[in-house]
Design a protein around this nucleic acid. Structure first.
Lengths: 400, 400
DNA sequence: CACCTTTATTCCATTTTGGAATTAAGATAG
DNA sequence: CTATCTTAATTCCAAAATGGAATAAAGGTG
């Protein structure tokens, strides 16, 4: 039923590699099933992959009445991948082995001085240091994956025009080429939301989940979609701008270039801060007054403090916000029908009730809900989602 | 960069078939390029396909300084496919040859008597008649594709629970099995929106369009999404319920099970009729009063008549509706970033200005619009979109 | 008509694949 | 503890698919 002719098939070895990358440990029987290959062929291919040091044996599975199957896994020392997360407020970098264990990581605030040049310095320094510390040779770093805020041009490896970056110099940055030249390893660029989705999907370790919606609710919002196990790419390499979804025609807007009545004006850290500030200035009573001092300087951290003290005003801000988020989620769920919706970002992880309100509101607005209801969950990778997914992309793109 | 291991590759012959089905006429060189096959292999495979009567030669291409290339196309008489569109208001059926020429078709209103049994009778009668008329043997009908309103279960070939059908008996209908038993040909079931999207995509004949959004605005709304040339399937085989997208929190709702403030309450034939009725009853002056008589019985056809007479009230209804539709479109465009948005259905095809307003409003709300803007267009297949796409699915699913 | 370009086919060596038989390893019953 | 059954893994060999290089065919150009 392929709408367009299928692209040339990957090599059998690559297909085996992908399968093991996803499942962790596999038996030959599982591979036969999953890849429609014969036992004969697998014997040969697995032997080759082992002699190339890509795979290694990993003991035996349980007997089901006869000989126990050999188990295979990736050789964790075959290669290491770096994941780099370039975002507006924080950026981070991490090194992973082939079993996706995080070996080292670093995170820093994107202040006004963090130009592309400085960021690249920082990446290089990190990589040199951890290679020293862990005794990993340069040639065993197989690649660096970059997850960045869009719009980007993935083919050209270019960060195009990330709005509202605190530091100058981020327009039309050929980040992939710059990093490849500096580090001497292959780099790939993808938008951060897609990378995070890939990461969270991997972390689910559930091959039945093949249709997924990922929404990150932090300072701003971004979304990504998976269908049939594949990322849903658009014509442009931009994260999904769920934050620009209009849920209240003629509603307020958050930023100069944003839509009126857009979701980001209701459900985002920026929106919360803005609402708190204006309400306080209108004389609203709250423990925030004591915590913050100047209403114009209220920050998300302060809101969290007030929340911890069970301030009813702040609690209301959060729950109100969450119910709007639920509407935005339902809107996408009704169109895309994912079986799993993963939410990431600070706004929801900070407040359990906000999560449950958002998901309940969303569930209530799902159409034909007796035939279908998605499962809602929180991302498990936290701040590492993007770098994790970006590193995973390196392995996925590896030629074996 | 495959997130999940690729499924087993289709056979080379099938890949060639798909390519010819999409392009119409191809040269060996184009196939070499598109499928990464060598000239040697193609010589063999094309020879086989011709001897199997799947392909036929179709003259020569132009010389570029040397020997002219042979051209290949599908043998239109290799097989014929039937497309069946099962919808709420009208259903239709059509017979196509392998070059997707429509050879015969029929369309009927879904009144209170059109039970599944009667529909199947009608399908059988149609098929018998056109086979007689055109002299096509039973064995040359390679299949029937069904595009139906959801929710459906594609795997089981079941129409599950189509809401608001005028006739009884449409819950949990194993329509595929019933039709296969009656007709003795393989049948496939897909939701109508996906079928229409496939059809309109084929009709574009533009292989550069690989990310598409299709929205049908008729009595209700339905949507479908294509990414990377593939239909974006959800966990459930339901058309996209863009009609349930909430664009005005606490807005009105159209139907009992629908969401408050959902798009369908602003932009659909039902919504127009409802709004016209209530406004007339409030004493609004319009040529509609003369056309319709009873305000409670105003129909879309009457609205179109009033529109033709340039009635300002009705015109306002249409344009207002269109601008809301634009908001709904923008919301999806911002998340999915298609390069092409195709609109089908009676509401927009009836009124040129409505189309232009909807698309302008949508374009205005696209985020990062200097980096990206989708192209908006009307569907070219009109009422045949679903049956066309359903028949196309038959050919796509053909084993060659 | 000689010569160049492009396309198509043929020939043959190489690679890939898959079925069937064989070997290996463990479970189970007596 | 051994005979027998089950499942897994490997080996062997024949069949199928592939691809490179040489050759043939068909057209253009001077």
């Amino acid at each position: 039923m392929s709408p367009l002719p299928a692209p040339p098939a990957p090599s059998p070895k690559k297909r085996i590699f992908d399968q093991v990358l996803n499942k962790g440990i596999v038996s030959k029987g599982e591979l036969m099933e999953a890849l429609s290959l014969t036992s004969t062929s697998l014997t040969r291919l697995l032997e080759e992959l082992i002699s190339e040091n890509v795979l290694q044996l990993s003991g035996h599975g349980d007997s089901t009445g006869g000989r126990r199957p050999l188990l295979y896994r990736l050789n964790p020392e075959y290669g290491y991948a770096v994941g780099l997360d370039i975002s507006r407020i924080f950026s981070s970098i991490a090194l992973f082995d082939m079993n996706m264990n995080k070996l080292a990581s670093e995170r820093w605030r994107m202040d006004g001085k963090m130009t592309p040049e400085r960021l690249i310095d920082r990446v290089q320094a990190f990589l040199e240091r951890v290679r020293q510390d862990l005794g990993i040779g340069r040639e065993r770093i197989v690649g660096l994956g970059i997850g960045a805020v869009g719009p980007i041009h993935s083919g050209e490896g270019m960060i195009q025009k990330p709005l509202y970056f605190p530091s100058p110099g981020w327009t039309n940055v050929p980040i992939r080429r710059l990093l490849e030249e500096r580090l001497g390893i292959p780099c790939t660029l993808e938008n951060g939301a897609n990378a995070a989705l890939l990461g969270e999907h991997w972390a689910l370790r559930d091959e039945n989940v093949r249709h997924m919606l990922y929404v990150h609710v932090g300072y701003g919002l971004r979304s990504a979609v998976m269908s049939g196990g594949q990322i849903v790419y658009g014509a442009t390499d931009m994260e999904g701008s769920i934050g620009q979804m209009i849920i209240q025609v003629d509603g307020p807007r958050l930023q100069e270039r944003g839509n009126y009545g857009a979701l980001e004006a209701f459900a985002s850290i920026q929106a919360l801060e803005k609402q708190a500030r204006s309400q306080l200035k209108l004389g609203r009573q709250s423990t925030l007054n004591a915590i913050a001092g100047d209403p114009d300087q209220v920050t998300f951290d302060q809101l969290l403090k007030a929340l911890a003290e069970e301030d009813s005003f702040v609690r209301e801000l959060f729950t109100h916000s969450a119910s709007y988020l639920g509407v935005g989620l339902a809107n996408l769920v009704n169109v895309l029908h994912p079986e799993k919706v993963i939410l990431g970002g600070a706004l929801l992880s900070a407040h359990e009730e906000a999560f449950s309100i958002a998901t309940q509101v969303a569930a209530r607005h799902v159409y034909h809900s007796d035939e279908y209801q998605p499962e809602f969950g929180k991302g498990t990778l936290q701040e590492d989602a993007v770098s994790f997914g970006a590193a995973l992309m390196v392995y996925r793109g590896l030629r074996v």
